[in-house]
Design a protein around this nucleic acid. Structure first.
Lengths: 237, 237
DNA sequence: ACCTGAACACCGTTCAAGT
DNA sequence: ACCTGAACACCGTTCAAGT
């Protein structure tokens, strides 16, 4: 694709950004040692100077994404509002690179930049009254969920808006044709289900549910032992 | 691996189950047309009689998983308790096949069994007071989150418990060696962060956060417009 | 209807060699 | 230090053919 022949052009960061560009345009599966090398006008084997193997290249992408997160500075807003802001910052970066968003969950604890986010979230949960162990669990889950919910909607990640719109129409037709006796709620919600709007509403809604859930957990932890709060059990697996 | 030479042994379901077994033992990347064919003692091309391409094989796995979900029968428990039960049933199936859990998010609306779960969740959210559009969004998010949070923890999905335990120790050592001035919360939470316990607590906690969040949203929707409830905003992306 | 066989265009990676 | 080149063991998939 885009090439160039100057020497000394290559570096870890250049390769990571090239790989990210490929992923953004054509999906994660298109990120290939040979493809990235070709885009850089270089032999596949050249990449092995900078990365031990392909997994290290992917780890490089994940780390790069964490570095792009612009965390808001600490203020004296309530802990849940601050948590919302931090998760929003993460979400903002991942939305722009949704095909690789799923990668970062595995590198939260192994990259410097990922640890910065973790440190911040842990601190906010502690402010909310979470005991350390519970905070760790919840923090892991929050970051993973943000990462994954932003990720690829499925195997039909066609990037052309044209094809996307016709896929929506096809799916809408499929849902509308269902048996109304068996799937009344699905049919009633067919339009918003099929559309999968990538808009503000979708993301605002996840964040509210997550932070709302964390808030509810904090309240429950505060009055621990009191039997007035209904306990929701999960059956043994 | 295991082979057998009888005729007529092959079918969509047999192949799907063979593929799932491979995924469970060696991860999703090991699921390969050639590998599944080999396990069935058959030529790779034989699979193309039952599946148009590899994606259809994966879709078959996803559908099979939805069929395994044993949804609790409707009773007159509160909507959020019932929602917890449905999500638990989904979680129970996916926990046993964590390497493929990430697949199902893309097939919720395209498989009969997936639609059954969707129908149920939509109905419960409506009982909780969600308007149709919001219910659709939240339903999609809930199922996707359950699927993805159960999924592969990252690239280090070593399945041998021996290697897993030593990986935990290594990560623990790494976290403990961090600068205490910069990462005090991470260091304090090092043990639960590194361990990544797959136990009851982890999953109970996600479900509580999610259902607690849905509950909070429902309450907010009920008193819509009233300014007493603090509104958490998400910045523009 | 159900499966085989050869072939094609791809992968990641090793090993040895060039500059 | 940084990159090339040939080779190996894998992929998914097409096309034609067998029974």
């Amino acid at each position: 694709m885009t090439s160039g022949k100057q020497r000394g052009r290559l570096s870890r960061e250049v390769l990571v950004r090239r790989a990210l560009a490929v992923a953004d345009r054509e999906g994660l599966d298109a990120v290939t040692i040979r493809r990235v090398a070709g885009d850089c006008g270089v032999t596949p084997m050249a990449l092995y100077w900078y990365f031990r193997d392909k997994e290290q290249l992917l780890a490089g992408i994940a780390e790069y994404l964490f570095e792009q997160v612009q965390m808001p500075s600490t203020d004296n807003a309530p802990w849940d509002a601050q948590l919302m802001a931090v998760l929003s910052a993460l979400l903002t970066v991942l939305r722009q690179h949704s095909s690789v968003a799923g990668l970062i969950a595995g590198y939260v604890l192994s990259s410097e930049a990922g640890l910065r986010v973790t440190e911040r979230v842990l601190g906010l949960l502690r402010d909310g009254g979470f005991p350390p162990g519970q905070a760790a669990v919840t923090c892991t889950q929050l970051v993973a969920i943000i990462a994954l919910i932003t990720g690829p909607p499925g195997p039909d990640r066609t990037l052309e808006p044209q094809a996307c719109e016709s896929a929506v129409r096809a799916r809408l037709a499929g849902l509308s044709a269902l048996d109304p006796a068996r799937f009344p709620s699905v049919i009633a919600a067919a339009a918003p289900l099929a559309r999968r709007d990538d808009d503000q509403r979708y993301y605002r809604s996840v964040l509210q549910m997550l932070v709302g859930g964390a808030h509810a957990m904090a309240a429950q932890l505060a009055e621990r032992g009191c039997g007035t709060q209904r306990q929701l059990g999960v059956p043994e697996g």
